[in-house]
Design a protein around this nucleic acid. Structure first.
Length: 199
DNA sequence: TGAATGATTTACT
DNA sequence: GTAAATCATTCAA
């Protein structure tokens, strides 16, 4: 594989639904001192605050946690939930528009041994990266990744194969009322690493 | 200051 | 299928 190159800022500076769909098939790359992890993104969700009741930025809530979403596109929004899991998001659109794409699943490509070690699972296991919390643990993405610029070469997206993309309702946001049914989840229907079957 | 809760995962029945 | 794990963040007072 040739050296992956970070996608330009313009990739992220578009409406969040377009970015969420465009992310399917792109490569996620994380370089650390312990090694490099690479995976192909196979599942994402769009969160379009402040109107979207499911988004942390709903109602324009601007706090220490959500601050990065109000900044320029192409940065990492990483948050911690359920007392044990991190989630990796991509800030999109434009400064002042708190829209983000949640990366829910990837297919491991490189650095699989490190992922297996961090997940304490066999390297062939599908459970390595088939969920938003799982891939963060596998890729060693934690609070240190909060706010990172995805146009730098530490944590970034790179071009990948063009994939036929399907959509469905988002997962795990039953508190959001009617917003649950919006088809803002995108995935590669051919991948065995999507976090679950069509709801 | 305190109580509620969550963009999940894992283990167990 | 259900439930426990576990704590930063949020909001009410």
């Amino acid at each position: 594989m040739s050296e992956p190159v970070p996608l330009p800022r313009e990739f992220y500076a578009r409406p969040v639904l377009r970015v969420a769909r465009a992310c399917i098939g792109k490569l996620l790359v994380h370089r650390t001192k312990h090694g490099t992890s690479v995976g192909r993104i196979v599942e994402t969700e769009a969160y379009r605050g402040p109107a979207d009741r499911a988004a942390h930025s709903f109602g324009g809530r601007r706090t220490a946690r959500t601050e990065v979403m109000f900044g320029p596109p192409g940065h990492a929004y990483v948050f911690f939930v359920y007392g044990m899991h991190y989630q990796f998001n991509i800030v999109t659109t434009r400064e002042g528009a708190p829209h983000a794409v949640l990366v829910r699943a990837v297919e491991p490509l490189l650095g699989i041994d490190g992922m297996a070690k961090r997940r304490n699972l066999p390297s062939a296991s599908r459970d390595l990266t088939n969920g938003p919390g799982k891939l963060c643990q596998a890729f060693a993405i934690g609070k240190q990744a909060y706010g990172l610029d995805l146009c730098d070469s530490e944590l970034f997206l790179a071009d990948g194969p063009r994939i036929r993309t399907a959509s469905s309702a988002r997962i795990g946001i039953d508190y959001a009322g009617d917003w649950v049914q919006k088809p803002w989840r995108f995935y590669d229907p051919k991948s065995r690493y999507v976090s679950r079957a069509r709801p």
